[in-house]
């Protein structure tokens, strides 16, 4: 069976430094307009099956949100394939993309910025649907569907005529979920959907998302930095660092036997109200390098307590270490260097 989403060697670069005139300069008698390139995503591959939840975790700047927004085709990828139901949508134009958007929708992080403050809730929720039907749908039909969606996410009909600012953060996130559901998608890309919410509201939204998944058979690409949330919601977990996928495994395998030093550091750094996970503690020094100048070899070597010469010389690739469990680390070949 073809997977719901199959991402192959996805790369995303952004040029920064302003417009042409801001970059113009003269050097040795020649006119130059150099570009600075941010290497946000550097060859990421993964698949999501129907009804499956894949979580991408990592710290800010690791490229997980960029992956999400590139797959949602908010950005056009620099290279790579994005296969939805087996069909590559990476370079589709606006018109060909429209039917794909009915299969794939997105939930955003910021409940305040993700809803147009000047639109009424009913117009917000109906927008993707109206785009799909190009206005042919009967008004009454759209209204019925909108109200049904609002009811499904726990809002009522009288909310439909209000503006976003009249709602709390959790309620706004429900509106965003209703909008994503309006076209009956099979895949939902959720970019940190609960990280801006209070703890008690987080649980409400996570429960709603899980109920919807069971009811509608949704697959999620779930972006998060919160490991306890990821552990709760994900079937598989991909760990990203500096635009690379460093480890990808089924949830239980990843939390029980993390292999990449970065994954291990993340797990031991996460504060918890319960007993610490049974993971040898790895404390990282320093901070994430700039995506403008990627380190040679392994992206993680500048912070890795185990790094040695090979890590500078050679970039590790993902290799299988167990059932469906892949890791990009030279320690796999030379386990004797793991001193913990």
């Amino acid at each position: 069976m073809t997977p719901m989403l199959d991402v192959r060697s996805l790369e995303q670069e952004f040029a920064i430094g302003g417009g042409l005139f801001d970059r113009l300069r003269f050097e040795r008698g020649r006119v130059l307009a150099p570009r600075k390139i941010v290497h946000a995503v550097n060859g990421v591959s993964f698949t999501i099956n129907r009804g499956e939840v894949l979580a991408l975790v990592g710290e800010s700047g690791c490229g997980k949100s960029t992956v999400a927004k590139t797959i949602a085709r908010i950005y056009r990828p620099t290279s790579g394939e994005i296969r939805i139901d087996g069909k590559d949508v990476a370079i589709l134009g606006h018109r060909e993309m429209l039917p794909v958007r009915a299969r794939m929708q997105m939930i955003f992080q910021d409940p305040f910025a993700s809803l147009n403050p000047r639109q009424k809730v009913r117009d917000i929720v109906a927008e993707p649907l109206l785009e799909q039907t190009a206005g042919r749908a009967a008004r009454a039909e759209v209204t019925d569907r909108t109200l049904a969606l609002l009811a499904r996410v726990g809002l009522n009909a009288e909310h439909a005529g209000r503006y976003p600012h009249q709602f709390s953060g959790g309620q706004r996130q429900r509106i965003g979920i209703a909008r994503a559901l309006s076209v009956n998608p099979a895949l939902i890309i959720a970019d940190e959907p609960v990280s801006a919410l209070d703890v008690s509201i987080q649980a409400q939204i996570l429960n709603l998302m899980m109920d919807l998944k069971d009811e509608l058979g949704l697959a999620y690409l779930f972006i998060s930095h919160d490991l306890s949330v990821v552990h709760h919601i994900a079937d598989r977990v991909g760990v990203m660092y500096l635009g690379f996928m460093v480890e990808n495994a089924p949830r239980d395998a990843l939390f029980a036997t993390p292999r990449h030093p970065y994954t291990r550091a993340l797990l031991s750094a996460a504060p918890t109200i319960r007993e610490k996970r049974d993971v040898a503690e790895i404390e990282l020094s320093g901070e994430v390098p700039s995506a403008l100048n990627l380190p040679s070899g392994c992206c993680f070597r500048t912070r890795c307590p185990f790094a040695w010469g090979r890590c500078t010389a050679e970039r590790p690739t993902l290799q299988a270490v167990g059932d469906d469990h892949t890791v990009a680390c030279h320690l796999i070949d030379e386990p004797e260097r793991d001193r913990t």
Partner: peptide, 24 residues
């Protein structure tokens, strides 16, 4: 208690988190 229970517990993974209903 509600705050503590809303934090997912990796030791006992349930399908549903216990949640505090409503909003502040």
């Amino acid at each position: 208690r509600g705050l503590i229970d809303s934090i997912p517990d990796p030791r006992h993974r349930q399908t549903r988190l216990s949640q505090i209903p409503g909003t502040v």
